[in-house]
Design a protein around this nucleic acid. Structure first.
Lengths: 336, 336
DNA sequence: CTGAAAGCGCTAACAC
DNA sequence: GTGTTAGCGCTTTCAG
């Protein structure tokens, strides 16, 4: 690896001059500039960004922390953010929880050791206290997609999950469904991960003087296979629902797969509504009705916030964007 | 940010001793060890991995270069590799071509500047010459998933795409199909990106004395939306095929969506076979018959090769793994 | 067992 | 215009 010293020696100047030439700073005579450039080329020089990072105190790297890239929802977010970050001259470290023993705290810690310039966190699996502790020595952090945005000691960005759940419920109710099932994700302690979405559904039911029927509530992990397994349970029990709200699209797709195996026609025999609006939801058969989270908007706002936060510490603020109903063909009027 | 000097000053020792304590090297009296540890804790010390990287000449970072993380195939690969890399103490930079102007060469160059310890490349979009040039100053590179593995000047790893295409063709032929369509991905110059898969199909056809009917060949980008658009063209033309080989699963899913809109039943009216075996292909309706690339195997072999290559330059070698038919319900016997 | 000195590759003041 | 000096935070000989 050739260094600026190699070039300096070859060109008969000092390292500073080489640095000045390469960075375009200071003033250098065009003669030496040319000479330096030529040797840089000849010696196939490439700057060592590690050294530059050390001195600048900036690495030009952002950390992304989220549960699993296997879920297209996060894959799409990663794609969008990587693109935007790249345009701003940043690289991305991906850190997912799929790493077995890897706790959120460890992941954050490691990113800090590597001196990333900022971090975007998705997931409730990391407590706000821990994040706060990391953020204190000014590690810029943007916290995304928390279900219920509380007062947050650092900048946060989310969608209105409650409203989304409500939209889903209202949609099914307006189609005449009263026997509504729920496919959702709870923690081991029995709390809903998708708690705000569920509360939104409950609020919608309440306006019809209905309550969530616990026999129609099934719990799985936010992925397609569990969605199918648990969906099958939901569909094979005695008094099965006429419509199901799956709190994310992957579970909804799993549910549709279960329905297909059971020869239950969608939407004739069963309406299904998802949540997220991932790209592939437009291409299932039938196309999924879902609550859309605008991923491009999310990515743009998050990266923007983060880059600002890196420049000068940002006052903690919370942005909550609206969720939207995205009509498909997986929901239809109740048939008696 | 506290440094080892801060600790040294507080503990009344020198930075060397602190370094020794923290790294567990050298020999330090248990008294000073304890003292140093205590101050490290108290001052909330965290080592600067950038500095360590500079001195060690190792960053503990691997670069992953591929076309698009939006395709679940690559998302799954990324997930698997990230997990394995993490276990070996490495972080991952993701670099995708979705970055507009970003050429493969630029991406590689940038990863080199950042002094990644090694790179895994997917995609034919980077010429072997360029990769070779990068690999020369010993940047360990593993080249993955080239359609037709030629003699490669650096370690490479692929699946037998020709055989995969052949399996797909044989499968459809054995079901009685003779009027077989192809949904594939070509470059602007008209070359097939999925050239080996197509050749495999042609080989299978040849054993039945058949040839690829150019009217039944449609070209799109390896994604679900183009698959649907182009699939619709294929299905609405006069003499439509009874079976279609889509050279990746996302296009196959797009094709199935087009069939659904046209009220063409799968597999009764149309057989569809895909390629890749992405997770979601097991949950489409009907589940997709496809040619499976074992992603976990691929990830494990690639990471292994790369880590070995990092330790000591590896002789260039090419591993080609077999592709497998994964039966679904999207293909069935020809109905007349 | 501990410390002094040098250096990884680069940049930033400040002289000259 | 160009060079000198110092230093980012850490590790690594090598003395003592």
């Amino acid at each position: 690896m050739t260094t600026i010293y190699d070039i300096a020696r070859a060109a008969g100047v000092t390292a500073t001059t080489v640095s000045n030439v390469l960075s375009g700073k200071g003033s250098v005579s065009s003669a030496t500039r040319a000479r330096v450039m030529q040797y840089a080329e000849e010696l196939n020089y490439s700057p060592n960004l590690v050294a530059r990072s050390l001195i600048k105190g900036r690495t030009g790297v952002l950390g992304l922390v989220f549960p699993s890239i296997d879920n297209p929802f996060y894959a799409e977010i990663t794609a969008a953010m990587e693109r935007l970050a790249y345009q701003a001259g940043f690289r991305i470290f991906v850190s997912t929880f799929s790493n077995g023993d890897q706790t959120g705290q460890k992941m954050l810690k490691d990113l800090a050791l590597r001196r990333v310039d900022g971090v975007i966190i998705f997931s409730a699996a990391i407590s706000l206290d821990i994040i706060h502790a990391m953020a204190l020595p000014h590690l810029p952090i943007i916290y995304c997609l928390e279900e219920e945005m509380q007062a947050c000691p650092f900048p946060a960005l989310s969608y209105n999950f409650f409203q989304g759940g409500q939209l889903a419920g209202e949609h099914l109710l307006s189609l005449g469904h009263r026997h509504i099932g729920l496919l959702t994700h709870m923690t081991d302690e029995g709390e809903y991960c998708h708690v705000a979405r569920v509360k939104g559904l409950q609020a919608a039911l309440a306006t019809y003087n209905l309550e969530l029927d616990s026999r129609l509530v099934k719990n799985g992990i936010s992925s397609v296979e569990p969605g199918k397994i648990v969906g099958r349970e939901l569909l094979t029990q005695p008094n099965r629902p006429t419509a199901v709200f799956a709190t994310n699209d992957m579970m909804a797709i799993g549910l549709m797969a279960a329905a297909w195996e059971l020869n239950i026609q969608i939407p004739r025999d069963l309406s299904v509504i998802g949540f997220d609006g991932i790209a592939i939801s437009r291409f299932t058969t039938p196309p999924l009705t879902t609550i859309k989270i605008d991923i491009d908007r999310l990515a743009a706002e998050a990266i923007n916030l983060l880059l600002h936060n890196i420049e000068n510490p940002l006052s903690s603020q919370t942005i909550v964007l609206p969720a939207q109903l995205l009509a498909g063909a997986s929901t239809g009027p109740l048939h008696l």
